[in-house]
Design a protein around this nucleic acid. Sequence first.
DNA 1: AAGGTGGTAGACCGATCGGTTTTCCAGCTT
DNA 2: AAGCTGGAAAACCGATCGGTCTACCACCTT
Lengths: 190, 190
Amino acid sequence: MTTTDKASTRDRLLDAAAEIFYREGVSVGVEALCRSAGVSKRSMYQLFASKGEVLAASLERVLPAYEARLAPGSQEEAGPPRERILHVFARLEKASAEPAYRGCPYLAALVELKDPGHPASVVARGAKEWLLGFFRARAEEGGARDPELLARQLMLVFDGASARAGAKVETLDGLTTATATALLDAAGME
Amino acid sequence: MTTTDKASTRDRLLDAAAEIFYREGVSVGVEALCRSAGVSKRSMYQLFASKGEVLAASLERVLPAYEARLAPGSQEEAGPPRERILHVFARLEKASAEPAYRGCPYLAALVELKDPGHPASVVARGAKEWLLGFFRARAEEGGARDPELLARQLMLVFDGASARAGAKVETLDGLTTATATALLDAAGME
DNA sequence: AAGGTGGTAGACCGATCGGTTTTCCAGCTT
DNA sequence: AAGCTGGAAAACCGATCGGTCTACCACCTT
């Protein structure tokens, strides 16, 4: 094994892919992607069957970190369910304040590739499913009247806010936490 | 003037542009666009300076119809402000039920062209501004505690719902009207 | 030291990109 | 009927698309 073996080549490629696809969109060319990763097209096509697979793998790779950021401390010290939900929106607002923020990468992928069958769309839907499930679980724990409804409402707020903030149409200073709070209260969640 | 004079050529082009850009995204090529419009590339480039300008003009062209659909009956018989707001979400839910629904075209344009300076992004932001203003005006009429906040919250719901329904991640049967109602109540709007 | 392995660089493929230009024709004017 | 106008068709431009392939090089094994 050389210093740039298969694994590290793959890592460099996926890291660069996540960064450039997020910054410039899924229409970035394979040439530019490989250049920014320091990986030859040859190597890329030995690791992946197509550009779409690279995109899907790059989205999948950052998913655990994404989830950990929104839902830290998987169990004990995580705090009461209401706090855990509001933490998601606090993180969203904090991230959206950075100038490089371009919205949730999973929602962006779903919108840009209009094809729901695209491998990256499948990964993106999985990310959305995970967050929906997180909200629903917390809603159940908190005794919400209709946990599924509340979770879906919170997803509307999350995705609406990330799309609008990413497109620089809105600045989220406290907006999503205020909105989420109103919905939690309306759902009778403690 | 022939039967296909300058005006009707322009109309055909913009109609086809609105349709194909909405269905397939802004990455559709000029070749395919002109073919579907029955307009030569020559004519297109005599009417517009670039593909981006065609996109912007096509979005601008359908804006009055878009606004009229969401806010019918500009003045008298339009009903109380609460109803007028809920009508927006009822229309959104109805539109999103159609299989060809791909989300709000203005939000999609903002997400796909990540450049806020793109001429089409300017038009799209204008459409979003208009809806925000509509919500705020109705919120004021209805005596909401914080009309601006309520309007921004409703925009989150609207854009989140259109993005999710357009990406086929969500089905909006009553979801947005229920959410909007909760927010209207929380804002103390009559 | 010889050979194998696994990577980069980049030429190359046909197709398509946005955009320009030429050619031709239909229909109007006079 | 001759001439003008404006649009359609399509060739053409250089660049880039996704993807393949050759050439070469650095390192590891033996």
